[in-house]
């Protein structure tokens, strides 16, 4: 199947909400081009959020896949409230939590393999791997999810609080703490890069 799709990711929640709403409306009628458009616009957010919860590239990929299947099959239940991205990521979060429950049952599966999973992928630059590595290593689970939702999905803090069911003040404090850590470590890396470049 060949589809002509714009190569862009959604960077904010509000700016593209109307467009995403229209994709979901078309998906209800079985329009796969609309599903593809929704995928292109949101897959980075879905994958980033899933990886931030699961810390396992294979599981995150599975959830990425299953999320869009779920979107396709349950689009008719979507009630537009101007928050299509929140709906998609709620599906993603539920699938991730389901995965975590499955993991507990299958204790023999290596739970966190993000490092090895990324190592094998040569198409990802070292810089990008470093950024993901810092997010995975330096941040707590909740901090990582908040950063993923804010930086990748473009969610506002109150939208993050709604999605994760935590108080706004917690989101604010954890976001600030996380960004401080990332500034410290990513700042160090960029400085050392500058020095080696010189």
């Amino acid at each position: 199947m060949i589809l002509h799709l714009p190569d862009e990711q959604e960077s904010g929640t509000n700016s593209n909400a109307g467009v995403l709403d229209s994709y979901i409306s078309r998906i209800v009628t079985g329009d796969k081009e609309a599903l593809a458009l929704l995928y292109r616009a949101t897959s980075a957010s879905v994958y980033g959020f899933a990886l931030s919860i699961l810390k396992n590239t294979q599981d995150a990929e599975d959830v990425l896949h299953d999320s869009y299947i779920a979107v396709y099959s349950s689009a008719c239940t979507y009630r537009s409230a101007g928050k299509p991205m929140a709906w998609v990521l709620t599906i993603t979060r539920n699938l991730c939590l389901q995965k975590l429950r499955e993991r507990k049952k299958m204790a023999d599966v290596l739970p966190e393999n993000w490092e090895t999973g990324l190592e094998s992928r040569r198409e990802i630059s070292e810089d990008d791997k470093l950024v993901i590595s810092e997010c995975m290593n330096r941040l707590s689970d909740m901090e990582r999810q908040i950063i993923a939702l804010h930086a990748i999905a473009g969610f506002k803090h109150r939208e993050i609080a709604d999605l994760l069911h935590i108080p706004l003040s917690t989101v604010l404090s954890k976001y600030n703490r996380a960004i401080k850590k990332l500034k410290k470590y990513l700042g160090k890396e960029s400085k050392s890069d500058d020095k080696s470049g010189n």
């Binding site: 199947m1 990711q9 960077s11 796969k32 599903l35 593809a36 995928y39 292109r40 897959s43 980075a44 879905v46 994958y47 980033g48 990886l51 990929e61 990425l64 896949h65 869009y68 299947i69 396709y72 099959s73 990324l118 992928r121 198409e123 990802i124 630059s125 810089d127 990008d128 791997k129 950024v131 993901i132 997010c135 950063i147 993923a148 930086a151 990748i152 990332l182």
Partner: peptide, 20 residues
């Protein structure tokens, strides 16, 4: 962060469309 995760996201669109 956005750039890194966008580049790292695998493309599973074909698999999704096939399953749908």
């Amino acid at each position: 962060i956005r750039q890194a995760f966008s580049n790292a996201a695998p493309d599973v669109l074909d698999a999704v469309l096939t399953e749908c």
